[in-house]
């Protein structure tokens, strides 16, 4: 019945032309390949990535984070509709690291964007979180590249602000946007100082109806808090705006700020530096992960590791000594 794919492995020998031409199905299949945990798929994925590399880099990459229920999905929907009206293509990648799991996950329910999902200009993909945050980050980074190669102008990575996920996301996008609730400005909602330092833009959501006033006050509170955090020598001074996704107020302003950010950093060379350093730390992260991965799989190292581990537990060998011993043995073997 299927004509396109003739055997199992061929499922992933994707038609790159079709991906580059923006075919929805091909993009979706490529993401599956990127996300696959099978070894041979990794090779195919790397092959794919190498071939699309020249066509990547063209999008504005935006990370959006914030506590559960703050209004991330509603904002992205409203923002996406606005961009689509400007004839821009928008891809939304959602990851939910709150469900670190050993079993299956429920996806898509927290990231509902019903109107955006219908637009020709939009692509929405939710990804199950793996066991490690690093794993999520690697796949999402590569998925951003795929979206760019398929011609998306804006790529948004949405994540619930829990655990360390903000750091991972901030490290793969050009601009990190933090969404916060109106009210409770006094203690700044217990937002970690580190996370606030990451933010290039803070959006106070739900600035409408009864909450409008409180949203404006909260924005003011964040502005003064931020003034203590950043030093003026940076390329960019973070902004704070109130926004109502419900009434589409503040959406245009958010976009203007993002464009300004982009052009400023483009001229200053800051964007290239940022992407460059993200890429190099990504490379090292890959090295680290692959190395550990290989080591854990190596049969000979496994035996030694077990023995060393028990020695370390029993206090017979110092952990540092054991680690070096294990590494040396593994590298010599390899």
């Amino acid at each position: 019945m299927e004509t396109q794919y003739s055997n199992e492995d061929d499922i992933y020998s994707l038609d790159i032309e079709s991906l580059l031409s923006g075919n929805r199905r091909s993009l979706a299949r490529s993401i599956t390949l990127i996300e696959s945990s099978r070894f041979d798929h990794r090779d195919l994925a790397e092959n794919l990535l190498s071939r699309i590399m020249p066509r990547t880099g063209g999008a504005i990459r935006i990370g959006i984070s914030g506590p559960p229920g703050v209004g991330k999905s509603t904002f992205i929907e409203s923002f996406g509709l606005y961009l689509s009206n400007k004839n821009l293509k928008i891809a939304v990648l959602t990851i939910d690291p709150s469900s670190k799991r050993s079993g299956g996950s429920i996806l898509g329910d927290k990231t509902r964007m019903p109107k955006l999902a219908q637009l020709e200009n939009a692509f929405i993909r939710s990804s199950p979180a793996g066991l490690t945050l690093g794993g999520v980050a690697r796949r999402t980074r590569e998925t951003i590249l795929l979206c760019e190669s398929a011609g998306y102008d804006v790529v948004i990575v949405e994540t619930v602000g829990v655990g360390q996920s903000e750091y991972a996301v901030a490290d793969m996008v050009d601009m990190f946007v933090l969404l916060v609730q109106p009210g409770g400005g006094d203690d700044l909602q217990g937002i970690k100082r580190g996370v606030m330092e990451l933010a290039d833009l803070i959006i106070v959501t739900k600035s409408d109806g009864d909450l409008k006033h409180s949203a404006q006050r909260t924005a003011q509170d964040f502005r003064s808090a931020l003034s203590f955090l950043r030093n003026e020598s940076d390329d960019w001074v973070p902004k704070v705006i109130p926004c109502s996704a419900l009434n589409s107020e503040g959406i245009e302003e958010a976009w203007k700020i993002m464009q300004l950010f982009h052009s400023k950093l483009n001229t200053s060379g800051g964007l290239a530096r940022k992407r460059g350093s993200q890429a190099s730390s990504w490379m090292w992260a890959e090295v680290q992960e692959t190395l550990v991965g290989r080591l854990r799989e190596s049969q000979s190292a496994k035996k030694l590791a077990q023995k060393l581990e028990s020695d370390v537990i029993n206090g017979l060998v110092a952990p540092g000594v054991a680690a070096r011993h294990l590494l040396n043995a593994f590298l010599a073997d390899d």
């Binding site: 079993g103 299956g104 996950s105 429920i106 996806l107 898509g108 939710s126 199950p128």
Partner: peptide, 8 residues
Amino acid sequence: ADIGFDVD
């Protein structure tokens, strides 16, 4: 999902 599927 509890059984182990990813479910949208």
